[in-house]
């Protein structure tokens, strides 16, 4: 994180994805600046998650380029980009249900030891990662649950665990796909604060539906509609954009969005 904040960490040029003739993502140019929280919003079916899957290589783009830290990553595999500092979460909570909370984090940490193919070594060789794993869990307030299986955690805590696992990878860019989806009010606030807290020294790109969350923590917002970018800027800029109002409310009067 020696590079200056404000420089682009992730850029796309003309990113397009077609599914059998249906254009899900159309000519998207996105610039995510280092050290910011960047939100990707848009109505249902706008192509947010597809866009996410393109960025993290889970889908191959039909055309266009993706540049991360100055290098073209368009042809990399999903596991490769995780190793160069870009780690994602998923829309549905993605923990390892029958591993313990500690093991969940440790599986991520284990990556960097380079011994993951060593089937003849005892798992005790992983114990040296326990302190660091506990530290990650402490950051999201899960330290006391370390020995429980992930499946036994309530939903909000599962999402927190997911963030802890992602943190363990020490990513420069965290991609969060709807981190507050399906949560109650308290959980939403807690996870929002958590994202704010862990974003220190990192860059976060998140897909989010909840406008309150976006308004409170996002530095930059990009609005997608029918696969294309229709606006990009701060919350104030974006919410004043007539096209955005039209997309969200089907009206161009300004009062509507003010009520949010």
């Amino acid at each position: 994180m020696s590079e200056a904040a404000g420089e682009p960490i992730l850029q796309t040029e003309g990113l397009t994805k077609e599914f059998m003739g249906f254009v899900a993502v159309n000519d998207v140019g996105l610039t995510v600046k280092r050290g910011t929280i960047h939100a990707l919003i848009g109505p249902n079916g706008a192509g947010k998650t597809t866009c996410f899957n393109l960025l993290t290589k889970f889908h191959k783009p039909t055309s266009g380029r993706i540049v991360f830290k100055g290098a073209d990553i368009t042809d990399k595999t999903p596991s490769q980009i995780a190793l160069i500092g870009m780690v994602r979460s998923f829309q549905i909570s993605s923990v390892f249900p029958h591993l313990t909370v500690l093991e969940n984090v440790r599986v991520g940490l284990q990556q960097r030891l380079g011994i993951s193919m060593h089937f003849w070594k005892s798992e005790k060789t992983l114990d040296r990662l326990n302190d660091e794993a506990m530290h990650c869990l402490g950051q999201v307030g899960l330290a006391e649950f370390a020995d429980r299986t992930a499946v036994s955690l309530p939903y909000g805590r599962k999402r927190a665990l997911e963030i802890a696992t992602t943190l363990g990878m020490n990513p420069e860019l965290m991609l969060l796909d709807e981190p507050t989806q399906g949560m109650g009010h308290e959980d939403v606030d807690r996870v929002t604060q958590l994202i704010k807290k862990v974003s220190a020294g990192r860059t976060v790109l998140m897909v989010e539906h909840n406008m309150k969350v976006v308004a409170s923590i996002a530095d930059t917002i990009t609005v997608l509609q029918r696969g294309s970018v229709i606006a990009s800027g701060t919350y104030a800029e974006v919410s004043a954009n007539p096209q955005v109002m039209d997309a969200y409310l089907g009206t161009t009067t300004t009062e509507g969005l003010g009520a949010h």
Binding site: S89, F96, H98, L99, V107, Q110, L113, F119, S122, E123
Partner: peptide, 26 residues
């Protein structure tokens, strides 16, 4: 031993949630 090895941990994580294991760089 294979089950209780660093390798075994990754195997279990693949069994539990393959996309997540990929996203962690495996």
């Amino acid at each position: 031993r294979a089950i209780h090895s660093p390798f075994g941990q990754v195997l279990k994580s693949i069994r539990e949630n393959e996309p997540r294991a990929i996203s962690l760089g495996y």
